[in-house]
């Protein structure tokens, strides 16, 4: 998704009211933005907290500011700057974290962000965008810019959006059946992976699939709730720890509505079982979030 992000920003960057700041990252990706934006492209150095404060100052003076780094560096390290400088003052500063979840794979624990949404989505007035498909990076950026409020964009592995899918809603329906046997909700790019798994297995007519692409949920009590009521079975997949993730959020919202699915399972990021490390797919497998594990659960539930 990083390339898509870069090419969209190259277009947006011609707007004189936009500033882009990177925390000394972007080799082989952000050169185009740098060349387009010239002195509105700032490399703030390996100094992420200052980067957010500077962004708040620029935003106060009328700029819309994108701040870019690897997801853990720009979320955890800068949490207080984002909370106070940006959110408290309701400024148009857009935090962009590359490689959300286990995206940086074998780079290891320091480079992973599997509790970033717990931190970011709890901040006042901040929207989180977790695009599922490469094409949704542009949709996210357009919405972030036009909303003009604090936001966080979590970039992950990019797959192409199937031609028939046009919508980009907070809870985005990817598959809808008249009589679903189960409902699946997946966070961001995992929804693209789940869609592939379901399609390969030929389960499209049996499963309703939704992707969670924007927090807080704006359209919870709509098609998603109807689907859960109809199927009475809900599976939630997220490359994020359980605490503060979407499953907790959804379970609470369903209970508040008095909806109790007969079958409910949430599969979060498992962390680091055995303190062993590998690529993104390895960590997904350890968590039960890889395509083979997901297929196993779908087959199991559909046979019941």
């Amino acid at each position: 998704m990083r390339k898509a992000f870069s090419s969209v920003l190259e277009k947006m960057g011609s707007d004189e009211k936009i500033v882009f700041i990177t925390g000394d990252l972007g080799f082989n990706a952000l050169e185009g933005i740098r060349d387009t934006m010239k002195d509105r492209f700032i490399n703030a150095g390996v100094a992420e907290q200052n980067m957010i404060g500077v962004a708040a100052g620029l935003a106060h003076k009328g700029y819309s500011v994108f701040c870019y780094s690897i997801a853990p560096f720009i979320t955890y390290r800068c949490l207080e700057q984002i909370r106070i400088d940006v959110c408290y003052h309701k400024l148009p500063v857009f935090i962009v974290g590359n490689g959300g979840g286990y995206g940086y794979g074998i780079m290891g624990f320091t480079h992973h962000a599997i509790s970033d949404l717990a931190c970011m989505s709890s901040l006042p007035g901040l929207d989180c965008y977790i695009p599922s498909f490469t094409e949704e990076v542009e949709s996210s950026l357009t919405q972030m810019l036009s909303a003009g409020r604090p936001s966080y964009l979590r970039l992950g592995l990019g797959r192409s959006k199937p031609a028939g899918l046009k919508t980009f809603e907070s809870i985005n329906p990817l598959l809808l059946s008249p009589q679903p046997e189960m409902t699946v909700m997946a966070l961001g790019p995992l929804a693209a992976s789940a869609l592939e798994t379901i399609s390969k297995a030929g389960f499209e007519k049996k499963i309703d699939l939704f992707s969670a692409v924007k927090l807080p949920f704006a359209n919870f009590n709509d098609k998603f709730v109807q689907s859960v009521k109809a199927s009475e079975r809900l599976l939630i997949l997220e490359e994020h720890v359980s605490r503060g993730g979407i499953a907790e959020n959804i379970a609470l919202s369903l209970m508040n509505l008095g909806i109790m699915p007969k079958q409910f399972k949430a599969i979060p990021a498992a962390g680091y079982p055995g303190e062993l490390y590998g690529d993104q797919n390895y960590h997904q497998r350890q968590s039960g979030l890889d395509q083979a594990s997901i297929l196993g659960i779908l087959q199991n539930w559909l046979m019941q």
Binding site: G53, V54, A56, Q81
Partner: peptide, 10 residues
């Protein structure tokens, strides 16, 4: 100070 730097830069 970071915020003031942002304002001065703006």
């Amino acid at each position: 100070l970071p915020i003031a730097c942002g304002i001065a830069k703006a």
